[in-house]
């Protein structure tokens, strides 16, 4: 295995992307809205397609805006269908995102002969190629465009979370209380949704639309098992995000060789790594892990024989 500067960039971009996703992801997990990340990331396809058809380029700001708008529209439509139609939230989410995805697919296929927009690229991204596209140089260091974009999104997310920490926290745990305290819970909801939409769109090129869901949910869920404090949870999820990026790329370089293959898709491996970290937390977490709960139960049984196992 040879470690090149390219590999460092891949890990950095992966880590930036995973961190940018993990921060809003914590709130999604706490608000029991994780699947919203899934819905939004699928539904931005028509936004990307329309923006691409209008502007004609793939790396444009317009594409970003188009996708972000469709992301927020997904949240709005889901809300409408579940409140006006009294449809289960999950089902209304499913209806909205599959329909938008289908529309996006139709648009792309209609324009297929004069458009270079591959749905495959949207689905899994191409993190291996991102370091090659450099726009900015500081000194002698050429910085890839994806790194600049993702770092900006990460900073924006951090800024929003720090400045609205109290509001986001209260509306995550108790929207009714938030409303009585004069916090606009609806506004906070859509702020979060826009954050998720923008982050998802920014992460597309790097990791694609499905893996971004792993970045949104897995580090946050891992952190949720390790702590009871929101601020600590945010920090842990960011650390888990960095770890999974490094671990993912390392295993993408080494694991295929073990089975005699040449290489594999790095972002897929990063998603696998986030799952691995969650698995560790699931078993080993100090308070909510399987092992500690098992020991706790055993101790209880030893102390008091009248307590039954179940």
């Amino acid at each position: 295995m040879v470690w090149l500067p390219l590999d460092t960039w891949i890990v950095v971009i992966g880590a930036l992307c995973a961190m940018a996703c993990a921060l809003p992801g914590c709130f999604l997990v706490l608000r029991k809205m994780s699947m919203m990340g899934d819905a939004i990331s699928h539904a931005v396809l028509p936004g990307l397609a329309i923006a691409f058809l209008v502007t004609g380029s793939r790396a444009s700001f317009g594409m970003f805006i188009g996708a972000a708008i469709v992301g927020v529209i997904t949240a709005v439509f889901t809300q409408w269908i579940s409140s006006f139609g009294k449809v289960d939230r999950g089902a209304s989410m499913g209806i909205v995102f599959t329909t938008l995805f289908a529309l996006g697919l139709l648009l792309i296929v209609q324009a297929a002969d004069h458009v270079d927009l591959d749905p495959g690229c949207v689905l899994y991204g191409a993190i291996e190629l991102t370091p090659l596209d450099t726009t900015m140089t500081i000194g002698r260091l050429a910085i890839p465009r994806a790194a600049v974009v993702l770092a900006t999104v990460l900073l924006i997310n951090m800024a929003i979370i720090i400045s609205f920490f109290k509001e986001l926290q209260i509306s995550a745990f108790d929207p009714a209380l938030a409303t009585t305290m004069g916090i606009n819970a609806t506004l906070m909801h859509y702020l979060l949704m826009s954050m998720v939409a923008v982050t998802t769109v920014a992460s597309f090129e790097a990791v694609g639309s499905i893996i971004v869901i792993a970045m949104l949910i897995a580090p946050a869920a891992t952190a949720y098992l390790l702590t009871d404090r929101l601020s600590v949870m945010l920090v842990i999820s960011a650390v888990a995000a960095i770890l999974s990026s490094a671990l993912g790329h390392l295993s993408a370089l080494t694991v295929p060789r073990l089975f005699g293959f040449e290489s594999t898709n790095t972002s897929g491996m990063m998603a696998g790594a986030t799952g691995l970290l969650f698995g560790f937390a699931w078993i080993l977490a100090p308070r909510y892990g399987l092992l500690s709960r098992w020991f706790h139960r055993k101790n209880l049984l030893a102390e008091d024989p009248t307590v039954t196992g179940e």
């Binding site: 997990v29 899934d38 869920a221 290489s263 898709n265 897929g268 696998g272 799952g275």
Partner: peptide
């Protein structure tokens, strides 16, 4: 665990899809 239904689904969905993409990536190479 105390992870709820929605996060469990999202987690399994994306991680397994990621692994699937990685496996297909190996196969294609």
């Amino acid at each position: 665990t105390r992870v709820k239904d929605d996060a469990a689904m999202g987690l399994v969905l994306s991680v397994m899809f990621g692994i699937g993409v990685a496996v297909l990536g190996m196969v294609q190479a």
